[in-house]
Design a protein around this nucleic acid. Sequence first.
DNA 1: TTTGTTTGGTTTAACGGTTAAGTTGAGAGG
DNA 2: CCTCTCAACTTAACCGTTAAACCAAACAAA
Lengths: 333, 333
Amino acid sequence: MHDVARLAGVSIATVSSVINEKSGVSPKRTASVKDAMSKLDYHPDLVARSLKLGHTKVIGMIVPDVTNQYYPEVMRGVEDEARVHGYQLMLCNSNENPDQEQHLLSMLFSQRVDGVLLASSDSTAVYDRQIRRRFPIVFIDRLPPGCMERAVITNNVQAAYDATRHLISLGHKRIAIIAGNILLSTGSDRVAGYRQAMQEAHLPIREEYFRHGDFTLESGIQCGLELMNLKNPPTAIFSCNNKMTLGLMRSLTELNIACPKKVSVVSFDDFEWAANFTPQLTTVSQQTYQIGKCAMQMLLRIINSEKNRTYQDEAVLMLPAKLLVRDSTTRAK
Amino acid sequence: MHDVARLAGVSIATVSSVINEKSGVSPKRTASVKDAMSKLDYHPDLVARSLKLGHTKVIGMIVPDVTNQYYPEVMRGVEDEARVHGYQLMLCNSNENPDQEQHLLSMLFSQRVDGVLLASSDSTAVYDRQIRRRFPIVFIDRLPPGCMERAVITNNVQAAYDATRHLISLGHKRIAIIAGNILLSTGSDRVAGYRQAMQEAHLPIREEYFRHGDFTLESGIQCGLELMNLKNPPTAIFSCNNKMTLGLMRSLTELNIACPKKVSVVSFDDFEWAANFTPQLTTVSQQTYQIGKCAMQMLLRIINSEKNRTYQDEAVLMLPAKLLVRDSTTRAK
DNA sequence: TTTGTTTGGTTTAACGGTTAAGTTGAGAGG
DNA sequence: CCTCTCAACTTAACCGTTAAACCAAACAAA
């Protein structure tokens, strides 16, 4: 910057003015400064600017597993919205590990990011003022216990209800569920929707049809095997996320059980490949891109309101999911 | 920091020494400083530190599409290696857009990242000294034209050769290829491997069996339809990436053509779902995690060698891929 | 002519750390 | 008792920006 100023024959303050497009610099000088900048291949140091300005124009995003299709899709929405407003993204992986999540959180704070988007894997952490004071947080996908605001999630209860209703309307009575980690809202809410639909239809929820997975492929295989090896196996299964569904389908292949002939399957989470399975999977499709976009918008509103001290609270935004009926579900015999 | 120093009754320099675990601070003071730090919930400002130190301990990573399974897998390797050495990751999406890629590159420079991992979508850009001077770059996945060093990629020629050989060894003669963007090394190298295997087996490469896709699902569908609607359709198809394969399989479903009965399919890129398709897909599996890990290690070596001025050059590291034979390929009749 | 205002710039003090150089005090050696 | 050494700590300069305060010249109004 110093060099640019010297080459253009002005002070560094003038260079700064040109960079930030402030008024009060004559066209002639503006031109010569710009000239000098490109001659020297000068790029402003955002580190220094951040230090001075007190904000970084970077927002952090913590997800439990980048490898799960779901999160990159959310990330697209976040990124597109962020770019429009000149923000950069710092993506971190918590590996479903609460300790690492806390560590990342404090690391992001040290990096002085302007805000954080968090899909928390910590079912015990209380994100109270302590953390809040550090920076604005918007929760995505998963709602931490007790959290009543600043979150963008899918209406999991409704979505699970719809999925289960679909099975019931096809005449199924023996409907099993492969639940995810019920310490997470995505785990418990989907179970709640299932329960609601079953009770409404006066169907019993048999203990043996209620399987606890943990959102991983392996647990899907395990639960699938257990369910189909019962003396009286279910005629339909509701699997609570994409990875477990994958495991479930593998177990069906292994046991040589035809789907949907012998058992109908409806899965949470749609993904590119779902329509390519044989059979094509009936899924609950979340608005992933939209979740990311809305979350980023909410975060931006919070950041700006803190800047202007016009604190307005942001409720939990619940986006509906859509049931995509394909070939893995069919009428009960 | 000021507050911490005051509370502990020392100077800020002493606080700094404690933070950086420098010798020359008495145990008593060390304790009281640490005490004060936790009392005030103090987290050092990495922005200020970066400004002073001239490095950020952040490395940038630019990928064409986070939504492609491949890149998150690479990212895992990068992240694990980065974490060990105290580096953070800034992930960016170029959307296969060269302009955006250039823009991100200059943005990352302004952020003063210590290095960059780049899967370039720019087939024309020359990454010469101009760019190099800004920061160390290691290329991943795709080798830009003319680049002979500082890259970690899969041995695409060999892998494509193996895949094609596999089809040939099954007795296929009419072997089609759905190529990707041949302006990218991943596109052209895979074609080269295919060519080599075909020529070696004295099989003609028919123009009509050579289809140009662009690595997208849509192009896969398109090429699949075109190929199977020929008067004399191929008995085997080599598809050059995961998304195009997905498209290809959709087109087969649409045309009601059985795989592998009517046509064998081998695909580049393995992914979690590949083993769940019906039929289970024969794929070329890249060492994604390892690519990320090795690339990060190489970048670290470059960064450190620049620091010590012990410039040593890094060649192109080529990792082998593995052919996973499953059910989508079978003997030609 | 004097005064006020506007325009187009410069100077300088932060921002929050790190570190080289300087200071202090205590113990050892002469 | 004086000097020397060394450990322990402080002072102050610096990193690259921005912005408030300041300044000079030009011009308009009284």
